[in-house]
Design a protein around this nucleic acid. Structure first.
Lengths: 223, 223
DNA sequence: GCGTATATTAAGTTAATATTAAGCGAATTT
DNA sequence: AAATTCGCTTAATATTAACTTAATATACGC
């Protein structure tokens, strides 16, 4: 899942980035409205967190343009201004949720998860598929109760494959959803992660068909 | 857990601060209504203790604004005026509890704990997890009956990790919940405390996996 | 079998965390 | 009030783990 954070207070921004990366999202950032819109023209985000009080381009205007560019992206508006009017206007213009500053980071986290949930097969914080058990809180994946120790990137990839296990995921999509802007599209890094993942999964499950390769198409989680 | 104390009698204020810091809360203070609201705009508190009889901005007005800013914060109103009317009004406006002056500090302490309790797994004053025993009253942590001598900050951190042991806690969250306003967000101080904590825990338990590191994500208490 | 897509390794780079020692200031003691 | 202690923070360095790169090997469809 890929998220764009638009926020001009850089300190706040950094905190969000870190927190959300830990949840396995690929994060891009913009600190003003113009570059936010630019990024949305280039990339396809699943969700945008948009601070309404922005330099250069008014937040409401950014909201309109982003929504025009991408009808399905989820947008969470953040604002220090608690006037109800603005709140309504924001939702009318196509925002999906609204948060008033200051808010607890856990609150943001919960709402993001809630909004992205619809795209997933399963919604809760813990999903069980056959002998696999994924705890989204603990970043923990177990097989028959046995823990599979994964790095952050491995966890991100596997979670994405699992949450979209009804489809075959192309390398391009995996790259797009699990890496951010700076990722080199020609890099082989992803394959190395897949390899490491398979190794760890094989060790834990004695199976080596859990991540299937569909040549020329992509990868697929096979529970 | 982070608390804002709003009280214009500075002597009383200092006493509260000291007492509550002892309990491991991160404490900010304000001595008038205007600055209380300002602080709530900047920071996310878990709880606010609000004296209703305030200079500059009427306490009830402060209450309204604080509640508007943050729906989930717990608010305890303190007042010398025990008129039932005001009491009702306060609770109607979104306060969670009410104390009439003069009151015993232990009373305040108990109510704060009661209100913050819901965020925790376990509510009682003493929690036992495996061989660990945490007495929130005595600020004492023991392992197999053996006392682990901790400084205040160490106790605060460990208690937070223990009370949220079902999640991985990022450094950002730890900083947010265990330090107050003056904390430098780029400080490495927390890591030093973690180090000291681990050392003491290792000494007492002979185990060194009690505070686990999940690289790129955070820390976790592993009982 | 040929060519392309993917897998496998090992080595290199970067980022995150751990460790250590020194400094500072508040509180306590003498 | 000087000296001492203690807890907390700072800063510099070390260590570790994660991630990427790059080079080579294998597999698979045509």
């Amino acid at each position: 899942m890929r998220i764009l954070l638009v926020e001009d207070e850089s300190q706040l921004l950094n905190a969000y980035v870190k927190g959300l990366k830990q949840d396995g999202y690929a994060i891009d950032t913009a600190s003003d409205g113009a570059s936010a819109v630019e990024l949305c023209e280039i990339n396809t985000y699943d969700l945008v967190v948009l601070d309404i009080n922005l330099p250069k381009l008014n937040g409401i205007e950014v909201l309109k343009q982003v929504r025009t560019l991408n009808k399905s992206v989820k947008i969470i508006i953040v604002s220090a201004n608690r006037s109800i009017e603005q709140r309504i206007e924001g939702l009318d213009l196509g925002a999906n949720d609204y948060l008033t500053k200051p808010f607890d980071f856990q609150e943001l986290r919960a709402r993001i998860r809630a909004l992205l949930r619809r795209d997933f097969i399963s919604q809760p914080k813990v999903l069980s598929i056959n002998d696999f058990n994924i705890d989204l809180n603990l970043h923990q994946i177990t097989y028959q109760g046995k823990m599979i120790l994964l790095t952050l990137k491995e966890y991100t990839i596997l979670t994405y494959l699992i949450q979209n296990r009804e489809r075959i995921i192309s390398s391009e999509e995996l790259l797009e959803k699990c890496w951010n802007d700076e990722a080199d599209p020609f890099s082989e890094a992803m394959r190395v992660h897949i390899y490491a993942l398979r190794k760890k999964i094989q060790e834990a499950t004695q199976r080596d068909d859990v991540i299937q390769t569909v040549k020329g198409v992509g990868y697929r989680f096979n529970p």
